[in-house]
Design a protein around this nucleic acid. Structure first.
Length: 488
RNA sequence: GGCGCCAUAGCCAAGUGGUAAGGCAGAGGACUGCAAAUCCUUCAUCCCCCGGUUCGAAUCCGGGUGGCGCCUCCA
C-alpha cells in the first residue's frame, strides 16, 4: 500500500511505514466520561474508525486502543452535583458512550482501558520519570514533570519554551510547588472526599496527561505507530505525553501523530465550555447514523467542518441515494440475466480511485466523490435492458466495490429497506408529521387515480406537496417520502 | 503578544506545478396521465487581493485582507 499520512510532528505528509511490518499500533485519546458526548467527539471517533477500518482493509493487523479517562476533576465535580459516586457516574457515561459509538457504527477498539484500572502502571511510570531526573515531588504531595529537564519540549506543538514562559507569566499564578510555572502535574494529592490511591507520595490520584502515557505503553509498548486525537489535544496533552513517555523510556514514543479538525457551529468550535454543542444522542433522534457519518466523512478529517441542519439534510440525501442504489442493484442482480460478457471498466477504475484517495491521508471526501460516480453508473446499468451484454457481470462487479467501500466507510452495510425506513422515521419525528393523516390522503388520492379523476389526484398531490411530502406512483400503489430541505 | 491552520461556483466540498473531482440547488431533455425516483446534457476561462519564481501556479515564494484554532478544561 502507498499510504501517506499527515504527521503533526513533522508538519508534512509522510509515507506510512509501520514499525513492525504488517502490524500497526494505534492509540486514540478517548473521552473524559463526565457527560454525554457530542458531535465533535463523533467526528474524531468516526475519523479514526475509518482509519482503523482502512488500515485493516489494507491487510494490516491493527491493534487499536482508546482509553476512558474515568477519574479527574470534572468527574469528581459532576458526581458531587448528582450525588453519585464518581466511579458510578463514569461507568454510566461509558455505557452511554458505547451506545453512541455503536449507533454510529464505529467498531469497538481492541482495547478500551480505564484509568482507574491502571493506577499501578501510572505510579510506576511516575516513579521512573522521577528516578530519571525528569520529575520531582513537591512538599504538598504533588509530583511534577520538570519541563527544564526535557530539551525537546514543544516539538509537537511547535512552541518555544521562552515564549511560553513569557506568555504564561501574564496569567498563570506563581505556584510555590513548581520549579517552573510550566511544569505540569503527574500525580496530585487527594483533597478530602476525593477518590485516592496509595502512592509513594501519599494518597492521591493521577494528573491529566500521565494516564495516556501509562496505558499506551501497557497496551502497545513504549514505542508505537499512530497516536490520534482532536487538534485541541496537541498542546498541552500530547506534548506532555511525549515528554512523560520519553522521559521514562528514553525511546521514541510515537511515530505518527494524527489530529482531526473541529466541528464548528456558525464558524465557531463546538465545545462544552461554549455551550454550543449537540450531543450524539440528540442528533441521532433526528438524523440517521449513516447520514451523520456521511456528513462527517464529506470533509477531510483535518479540516474544520460546519455543523448545520442544512449539511445534515444534504448528507441524508446522499445516503438515501446510495442506499436506494444498493437496493436497486441487489434487486437487479437477483433478477439475473445472461451470464458473461464484458465487464464495464467502471468498477475497477473507481475501486482504484478510492484506494488512491484513501492512501492520501485518508481523503474520504474525494473517495466518496468517486463512490458517487460509481452509483450513477450503477443506476445507469440497472436501467439498461436485461439482455445487454455484460450487464449482470458489471452489476456484480459494481456491487462488490460498493461492498468494499461500505466496509471502509462504515455505511451501506445494513439492509437498504431497513435503512430507508429508519431515515423516514426520523423525517417524521423531525418534522412532526402525522403519518396516519398522510396515508389517509394517499389512499384517497389512489382511489381518485383509479377512478381516472386526475384533477382530484393532482389536487391531493399539491396538498401533500405543501406539507413537504412527495408522492410517487407505481402500478401497485403510491408511496410517499419527505422532500429534503437542501436549499435555503 | 507567541504559534499554527484556512480562504475554490448560490451552497457543501476534492484538488499542492500542466491548465478546476463529487454533491446540493438551478436550467434543458428522456421517462411519467401529471409527478416522484432514475438517467442524459448543462452550470467556475477560473480558484480572496497584490507582487514574484516558472515555458507553465488554484497549487511554490513574499506582502496584504478576511476567518478560525491553540497558548486554560476540551475530540
Amino acid at each position: 500500500m502507498g499510504l501517506k499520512v499527515f504527521n503533526t510532528l513533522s508538519g508534512k505528509k509522510e509515507d506510512f511505514v509501520p514499525l513492525e511490518q504488517g502490524r500497526v499500533g494505534m492509540y486514540v485519546c478517548g473521552v473524559t466520561v463526565y457527560d454525554f458526548s457530542h458531535i465533535g467527539h463523533a467526528r474524531c471517533y468516526v475519523a479514526f474508525d475509518v482509519a482503523y477500518r482502512y488500515l485493516k482493509a489494507s491487510g494490516l493487523e491493527v491493534r487499536y486502543v482508546r482509553n476512558f479517562t474515568d477519574v479527574d476533576d470534572k468527574i469528581i465535580n459532576r458526581a458531587a452535583q448528582t450525588g453519585e459516586a464518581p466511579v458510578d457516574l463514569a461507568t454510566r457515561n461509558i455505557r452511554a458512550f458505547h451506545e453512541d459509538m455503536d449507533a454510529l457504527n464505529c467498531r469497538r477498539p481492541d482495547v478500551e482501558p480505564r484509568v482507574t484500572d491502571h493506577i499501578p502502571d501510572i505510579i510506576a511510570l511516575v516513579e521512573r520519570i522521577v528516578a530519571n531526573g525528569h520529575g520531582y515531588a513537591a512538599p504538598d504531595g504533588s509530583v511534577y514533570f520538570s519541563i527544564d529537564s526535557f530539551r525537546e519540549y514543544g516539538q509537537l506543538s511547535k512552541r518555544n519554551l521562552d515564549d511560553m514562559v513569557a506568555g504564561a507569566s501574564e496569567r498563570v499564578d506563581e505556584d510555590p510547588n513548581k520549579r517552573n510555572p510550566l511544569d505540569f502535574v503527574l500525580w496530585k494529592p487527594a483533597k478530602p472526599g476525593e477518590p485516592w490511591w496509595e502512592s509513594p507520595w501519599g494518597r492521591g490520584r493521577p494528573g491529566w496527561h500521565i494516564e495516556c502515557s501509562a496505558m499506551s505503553a501497557r497496551h502497545l509498548g513504549e514505542t508505537f505507530d499512530i497516536h490520534g486525537g482532536g487538534k485541541d489535544l496537541v498542546f498541552p496533552h500530547h506534548e506532555n505525553e511525549i515528554a512523560q513517555s520519553r522521559a521514562a523510556s528514553g525511546r521514541e514514543f510515537v511515530k505518527y501523530w494524527l489530529h482531526n479538525g473541529f466541528v464548528n457551529v456558525d464558524q465557531e468550535k463546538m465545545s462544552k465550555s461554549l455551550g454550543n454543542f449537540f450531543t450524539i444522542r440528540d442528533v441521532l433522534v433526528k438524523y440517521h447514523p449513516e447520514a451523520i457519518r456521511m456528513f462527517l466523512l464529506s470533509t477531510h478529517y483535518r479540516s474544520p467542518i460546519n455543523y448545520s441542519t442544512r449539511n445534515l439534510e444534504e448528507a441524508t440525501g446522499r445516503i438515501e441515494y446510495m442506499t436506494e442504489t444498493v437496493a436497486k442493484l441487489d434487486a437487479a442482480i437477483a433478477d439475473g440475466g445472461p451470464e458473461g460478457g464484458e465487464v464495464a471498466p467502471d468498477a475497477e477504475r473507481v475501486k482504484a480511485a478510492i484506494r488512491e484517495a484513501m492512501d492520501d491521508d485518508f481523503n474520504t471526501a474525494a473517495a466518496l466523490g468517486h463512490l458517487f460516480e460509481l452509483c450513477r453508473g450503477a443506476n445507469d446499468w440497472v436501467a439498461r435492458k436485461k439482455k445487454t451484454p455484460g450487464r449482470l457481470a458489471t452489476l456484480v462487479a459494481i456491487r462488490e466495490v460498493l461492498r468494499e467501500a461500505a466496509s471502509i466507510f462504515g455505511i451501506l452495510e445494513n439492509p437498504p429497506a431497513r435503512v430507508l425506513a429508519e431515515i423516514k422515521d426520523r423525517d417524521v419525528v423531525r418534522l412532526g408529521l402525522d403519518v396516519t393523516d398522510i396515508e389517509k390522503v394517499i389512499a384517497e388520492r389512489w382511489a381518485a387515480r383509479q377512478a381516472k379523476d386526475f384533477a382530484r389526484a393532482d389536487a391531493l398531490r399539491a396538498e401533500l406537496g405543501a406539507r413537504n411530502i412527495d408522492v410517487s406512483d407505481s402500478p401497485s400503489g403510491s408511496t410517499w417520502r419527505v422532500r429534503r430541505q437542501t436549499q435555503e
